[in-house]
């Protein structure tokens, strides 16, 4: 095949894939800004005929019905990512300093918790949480989300710390720093990008988490639960609107992440 044909083929493939991925999101967005008569017809149009922001207005006007789940989701997600970093930064740093084989083994063990389906482990977890008084609390939900988040965060950070140039750390030790001082003054500041990637991943995992939230919640739902509430009642406009609101931070963070994951940051430290 000659080059122009190849290029056309390539871009065609990309276009088809993008359409497949974006189309459901488009439908979600479309419903959230369409008047009901655009949706409740025999043949719903693909384009928005009657644009309206009334669904968003309704959701925002519903007061604590909307803002209570929003704040619970935000607080839980933020708390989960902060807690996960507090736990996984030291853990991953330690693991990354093991020899390669030991490191691999430890990561496998950490991922063992992910091998059990959440749907089956959530029940015993929630029973334990009820006994511990953590049922229907933000902190309890954070702990449950950590089960999900810690292995991923740890995995990312082991990669970050493993690729950290050993010489810089050695140099700090030679310069008279203890291990902790070297970690806080040299390793940590230079690994901030990797750490923020792990933090954002943790946030997003917690943000749209559903299973633990549904097991551990009675009266104070999170955003995904609220959305499910509307779906189960057939209110597709509210659920689409909630879906859009849930999606926005995920989109923003994904774009931010894409900028963060960039090589060449440590250039200038090493020669050769």
């Amino acid at each position: 095949m000659n080059r122009p044909v190849k290029r056309t083929f390539f871009w065609m493939t990309v276009l088809i894939l993008v359409c497949l991925l974006v189309f459901p999101m488009y439908i979600m967005l479309k419903i959230s800004v369409s008047a009901p008569r655009d949706v409740f017809t025999q043949n719903p149009p693909y384009l928005v005929r009657h644009f309206t922001l009334s669904h968003f207005r309704d959701v925002l006007a519903s007061g604590s019905v909307f803002f209570a789940p929003l704040s619970k989701s935000v607080v839980t997600a933020l708390g989960t990512s902060v807690l996960s970093l507090l736990l996984t930064v030291p853990a991953a740093y330690a693991i990354s300093r093991f020899r390669y084989r030991a490191r691999y083994g430890l990561i496998l063990v950490i991922f063992l918790t992910r091998m059990i389906p959440e749907i089956s482990i959530a029940l015993p977890v929630s029973i334990t949480f009820i006994k511990g008084g953590l049922f229907d609390t933000v902190f309890g939900l954070m702990l449950a989300h950590l089960v999900r988040v810690l292995p991923i965060s740890c995995f990312i950070l082991v990669g970050v710390f493993s690729s950290f140039p050993k010489e810089l750390e050695k140099q700090a030790l030679i310069d008279g720093a203890g291990r902790l001082y070297a970690f806080f003054k040299i390793v940590l500041p230079l690994s901030l990008r990797g750490i923020s990637v792990a933090g954002i991943f943790s946030f997003m995992f917690s943000w749209d988490e559903f299973i633990y939230a549904s097991y551990l919640t009675l009266s104070k739902p999170t955003m995904p639960l609220k959305m499910y509430y509307y779906i189960s009642r057939g209110n597709i406009f509210s659920s689409a609107t909630y879906a859009v609101i849930i999606t926005i931070p995920v989109l923003i963070f994904t774009f931010a992440l894409q900028r963060y994951i960039r090589p060449g940051y440590l250039s200038g430290a090493m020669k050769g």
């Binding site: 140039p165 010489e167 810089l168 050695k170 140099q171 700090a172 030679i174 040299i186 500041p189 230079l190 440590l266 250039s267 200038g268 430290a269 090493m270 020669k271 050769g272």
Partner: peptide, 13 residues
């Protein structure tokens, strides 16, 4: 002890 490495190991930040 002071030590200078082959790749200098300067702190980039």
């Amino acid at each position: 002890i002071a030590m200078v490495f082959q790749n200098y190991a300067l702190y980039p930040h």
